[in-house]
């Protein structure tokens, strides 16, 4: 009985993990454009581009991968800090 319960328990977690793999694309950018990594790579170093790292907490602390030159910004305060950037510049927000 205990073995069965443990198997069920582990199955639930694996299912949750599998669902997160499938569901992840559904949460990609909706109303704003999405730039591919190849497009971004081609524009790195451009004056017209500002890259903003909007990761917080462990998402940022634990990651080794940070784009050089990216500035940190809080996604929740977009209205506040976005006004400080020229409207003709491209802002790229990345979180993964």
């Amino acid at each position: 009985m205990l073995k069965t319960n443990i198997k069920r328990y582990i199955a639930v977690f694996i299912l949750a993990g599998a669902m997160s793999i499938v569901a992840a694309p559904a949460f990609s950018a909706g109303t704003y454009g999405v730039m591919s990594k190849e497009e971004l790579k081609g524009q790195l170093g451009s004056d017209q581009l500002t890259i903003l790292d909007v990761r917080t907490g462990r998402d940022w602390n634990s990651s080794e991968f940070k784009i050089q030159g990216a500035q940190r910004a809080a996604s929740g305060d977009f209205e506040q800090w976005s006004a400080g950037y020229a409207k003709d510049k491209t802002l790229v927000l990345y979180c993964a």
Binding site: G17, A18, S20, I21
Partner: peptide
Amino acid sequence: PNFSFAYI
């Protein structure tokens, strides 16, 4: 996915 690994 990193969170899947965390759950597992």
